[in-house]
């Protein structure tokens, strides 16, 4: 099982990558999509590890996954 400390380190790295990607122009076409995907991954880390939703009933797990999936898809499609 991944410890909270490992999750924190991953979240910090993903946050820094997000900020760095926003300043990089060589992948200009996909910057927004990459940033949204990184945000979705961070959201997953907080909700399933810090909030311990991985231990909950499947309904709650699927509901939050559905929310973040829809958010990501709609956002990327509008961008």
């Amino acid at each position: 099982m991944i410890s909270n400390l490992k999750v924190l380190i991953i979240l910090i790295i993903l946050t820094i990558i997000s900020a760095l990607v926003a300043f990089n122009s060589f992948i200009m076409n996909y910057i927004s999509e990459i940033i949204i995907v990184l945000a979705v991954l961070k959201f997953y880390g907080v909700v399933f590890y810090f909030m311990e939703l991985r231990k909950a009933h499947s309904f709650w797990k699927l509901s939050i996954l559905l929310f973040i999936f829809l958010f990501g898809i709609i956002t990327i499609n509008i961008l």
Binding site: S18, A22, I36, A39, F50
Partner: peptide
């Protein structure tokens, strides 16, 4: 109480990329 605090975190994780980065 912890879940409420984490919720603030979750909302910010959605706001930050959209407002500051994309």
């Amino acid at each position: 109480s912890a879940a409420f605090w984490h919720m603030c975190d979750l909302i910010w994780l959605l706001l930050f990329p959209v407002i500051y980065l994309i």
